[in-house]
């Protein structure tokens, strides 16, 4: 996935001289996770800008650059560090367009690694996508593999609005996947039906997709259940149509999220199922999620994030209801 995102950055910087990358250590050092590898050497320090460690300053400056006609891609080293920059996301990115009735907008990408995977505690491992998705005017995108990461990053850079691009660091180097030679673009706001099925819908995103697919094959192997799997890809706007269509067909649904259980994206998915497919349900919509606590320190991390077994149990419970 690191290479997929990196490829999109190279392609977009090549295509459009207005695109630039900024953040701490993104230049000479090529980023903590090497997502910006090769950019500094190729495009120079004018367009690959090493900034001070100043999250609020980074995003606030990026807002000004976007207003002045550039297309900044700003990096936060970990999503947990972005809270110091939230004021600009909430106060400017989310509302410049509405406030000026379309006269001005803030087309920037805020990209950041999020979620578990490096066994570091708290801010280094959190999933706060719901917090960003709650802001009107902001798009929140989460890829799940190298190919969609590249296509979605391309779309995010070309998008006329602010896109928060959250990179599941657990998937950074988890697996390989071929990507097409030619640049590829995916629509933001569209979910992907990973596999079709007729008895249960499992909705997930980010690093949870791989665990979900493992759990699904276990369940399928044991009891021949026909399971449909949806990868949300875009948290906001959310693809209600694809969700509704699937749940109306299967009548059963489980939502799997890495984030804490309450007030999250899963809750929103369930609310939309309520709005669009309630009368088709044969069981309450299940939720598999982390606990409502701060991401714990090293030793207990594995007990915190939903594992394959948790997902499998959640599926069985809903299937047997």
């Amino acid at each position: 996935m690191v290479q997929g995102i990196n490829l999109a950055l190279h392609e977009e910087m090549q295509r459009d001289p207005k695109v630039l990358v900024m953040g701490q250590d993104v230049g000479v050092n090529e980023g903590v996770f090497r997502v910006t590898a090769g950019l500094h050497a190729k495009f120079g320090e004018t367009r690959v800008i090493d900034t001070p460690l100043a999250e609020s300053g980074i995003l606030g400056t990026a807002v000004g650059m976007a207003l002045a006609g550039l297309r900044p891609v700003a990096e936060m080293q970990f999503s947990g560090f972005s809270y110091l920059a939230l004021g600009h996301l909430e106060g400017h990115c989310s509302r410049y367009r509405a406030r000026t009735h379309g006269a001005l907008s803030v087309p920037l990408v805020l990209r950041m690694p999020y979620g578990g995977g490096v066994r570091a505690l708290e801010h280094h491992s959190e999933s706060r996508e719901a917090m960003f998705a709650h802001l009107p005017g902001i798009k929140v995108v989460i890829p799940s593999g190298p190919r969609n990461a590249r296509a979605l990053m391309t779309a995010a850079i070309q998008d006329p609005d602010t896109v928060v691009f959250m990179e599941p660091k657990h998937s950074y180097r988890a697996f390989r996947e071929d990507v097409p030679e030619e640049p590829e673009l995916m629509d933001i706001g569209k979910a992907h039906v990973v596999q079709e099925g007729s008895e249960l819908t499992v909705i997930t995103w980010g690093a949870m997709l791989r665990k979900t697919l493992e759990a699904v094959s276990e369940v399928q192997a044991k009891r021949e259940a026909s399971v449909e799997v949806i990868d949300l890809l875009s948290i906001s706007p959310m693809d209600t149509k694809t969700i509704a269509k699937s749940v109306r067909k299967t009548g059963r649904c489980v939502v799997v999220q890495e984030a804490p259980r309450s007030f999250g994206t899963a809750s929103e998915v369930i609310a939309r199922i309520n709005d669009t497919a309630l009368m088709y349900l044969e069981a309450p919509v299940g939720r598999v999620a982390s606990f409502d606590i701060v991401t714990p320190y090293f030793a207990r991390e594995q007990n915190y994030f939903p594992g394959v077994e948790d997902i499998r149990r959640g599926m069985i419970k809903t299937l047997d209801y």
């Binding site: 630039l20 609020s56 300053g57 606030g60 400056t61 000004g64 650059m65 207003l67 106060g91």
Partner: peptide, 24 residues
């Protein structure tokens, strides 16, 4: 190019605009 009602909010924005002028 706008005002930020959040005290201090307009400071990095104006700084970023200067960055854009320099880059362009």
């Amino acid at each position: 190019m706008g005002s930020s009602s959040i005290v201090g909010g307009g400071v990095p924005i104006g700084t970023g605009m200067a960055m854009a002028y320099k880059m362009r």
